[in-house]
Design a protein around this nucleic acid. Structure first.
Lengths: 336, 336
DNA sequence: AGAAGTATCTCAAACGTTTCCGTTAATAAA
DNA sequence: TTTATTAACGGAAACGTTTGAGATACTTCT
């Protein structure tokens, strides 16, 4: 690899001058700057990221902490999409992406935060299903810029999908379609689940819909089997709801199968509502009525905000940014 | 951050001794080694990855080059799963994962290979839908250890799914079920597509199945819309096949919808076969008959082999490792 | 006892940058 | 002409490691 020294030797100037020329410092003449830049290009020079990082304490590396308890990791379409756009946006600004987790290195266990320190990442984005782990707290309380996705911590910038109003929109639609007997299979306890539940309650109240305890089930996100069981349970009740809200689109498939196995059909006998707007949901027939999360915007906003926190620590301030999704009308809700 | 110097000061030995103690060199007494390791732990020491990399030219970072022309990136379940297990295996050995691509940095365009050099990754794993790009060639011809997935280059280690025998198994199954009139919607031209086609032909020949040109269509991987159109085309033909092989499970959904829209049902009127064994395929009803690629093994094998190439450049040799998948019987193929 | 070997540790250079400070020469101000 | 100012560049230390070559003391062999 060609280094600054090679360029300096070739051009008969000092290493310092080359460095300054390439980094746009003012104390180098236009003529030599141009010459140095040109030969740097000719010689195929690229700065050594390690050496630079060692001096500047800036790696231009962003740590991503994506953990879901189900262990689905990137298989989770929401995460995958967010990461995809996060990556694209970050790369535009010259940052690379490294996965961060807790692990063992050199026989010694390293927490996620220690891992970040070890790798000297400039910033961290956290998107987990569980934000209550010690690993998350350590990172939150550390001194590395952090952006969280779908969870709000004090004094940390957060990008959140508007789960509350998303759920409101879905419920309002169902009510508009004439549904009054509505069941809701929630996802597991989390900030997201709470927000959606809040939106559910709020809309029910405003539309005068009764929330029956036996129709309010706690299930799992992204767990079709679990949703299958819970849907079966609903179908065995003495009275059937006319519409079931599923934890998410993926889990909804389990619900749909339970309904089909029960000899009922969607949406004629029973209506179904999802959440997320994953690609598959629109390949089913009938297409799932759902709420599409704007994952590209969530990811790119997270990247931009994180980089802003890194590069302008004084002028930027922590904030909570809500990204709107979009209601997506499928055919899984019957108009009564 | 606490450095070697801090430990050396605290313990009254030289920095060199601390370094050697921590790295398990032989020329340091057991007593002092133990003492140094202990205080290092107490002080919360972690090596500075940049400094270490600068000296040793080893970053313990692995570059992943995951490109698909559809731009689905990690959304592609095959990639996501492979990456997941690759990452897990790599982390076990102390390696981290960085995404590598071509991009602009500091106003200058950087090829993927240059990007690798810039970041000094120790090794690269390539999994693309298109292996014929200049970016891939540059990496292949470079001097960084490389492992490719599902594509074979001379003198480079490759991990390949056994696409040929997988397809054979599927076709044999269909024939065993009594099918003779079989259509195949292929994926786009690629090593994978060729292997599967080869397996298709081979099995057809061995089982005495006629391959009709009008039933051999070239489509797209992971493109349900495209598959929908091509399936429609098949259904409009003067004679219907009794079984259709789809490019992959995801694309198969498009095919299933086309069949349903055509007023036919699966598997009663027409049978369908997928490929990949993605989660969704087993949530459909009927469950898709398909061939599950062993993504966990592909990913972990790729990681192990790559690390082996890095750490034992002399003893390891390039090889082609075939990872078997598994036939998965669903209900989408009718027994005639 | 002298030589040779071994165990343990230190010195110091090196990896490729960045950056503060100093130096020189040229220009502007007095 | 002298002094102050500025522009352009170089020297050198520093970031935190690793590592081969010495240095010292101790043991072992002949």
């Amino acid at each position: 690899m060609v280094s600054l020294k090679d360029i300096s030797a070739r051009c008969g100037v000092s290493v310092a001058t080359v460095s300054k020329a390439l980094n746009g410092h003012k104390d180098v003449s236009e003529a030599t700057r141009e010459r140095l830049i040109r030969t740097a290009r000719e010689m195929g020079y690229f700065p050594n990221a390690q050496a630079r990082a060692l001096k500047t304490n800036r790696t231009y590396n962003l740590g991503v902490m994506f953990l879901d308890e189900a262990g689905r990791g990137l298989t989770h379409e929401f995460f995958a999409k967010v990461l995809n756009s996060f990556k694209t946006e970050a790369e535009l600004a010259g940052y690379d992406i490294t996965f961060i987790s807790n692990k063992d290195i050199g026989g010694r266990h390293m927490s996620t935060y220690e891992h970040c320190k070890y790798r000297s990442v400039d910033g961290i984005v956290i998107a987990c299903t569980d934000f209550t782990t010690p690993d998350v707290f350590e990172v939150i309380n550390g001194d590395i810029p952090v952006v969280t996705i779908d969870h709000i911590f004090d004094c940390r910038t957060a990008i959140v999908s508007n789960n509350e109003s998303g759920m409101e929109k879905l419920l309002n639609y169902a009510v508009d379609c004439g549904h009054k007997k509505i069941a809701y299979i929630q996802g597991k306890k989390s900030a997201v689940a709470e927000k959606r539940l809040a939106g559910f309650y709020k809309a029910c109240v405003s539309r005068g819909i009764e929330v029956r305890p036996e129709w309010l089930l706690v299930g799992d996100y992204c767990n079709p089997d679990n949703t299958y069981q819970l849907t079966k349970k609903l179908l065995k009740g003495r009275e059937l709801p006319t519409c079931i809200f599923m934890p998410d689109d993926y889990a909804a498939i389990g619900g749909l199968n339970a309904i089909k196995d029960g000899g009922l059909s969607v949406p004629d006998d029973i209506s179904v509502v999802g959440y997320d707007g994953i690609a598959f949901s629109q390949l089913l027939s009938p297409r799932l009525t759902t709420y599409t999360q704007d994952t590209p915007r969530i990811g790119s906003t997270a990247a931009r905000k994180l980089i802003s926190l890194i590069e302008n620590p004084q002028t930027t301030f922590t904030e909570v940014i809500t990204v709107d999704g979009q209601f997506l009308e499928g055919g899984s809700v019957k108009k009564l």
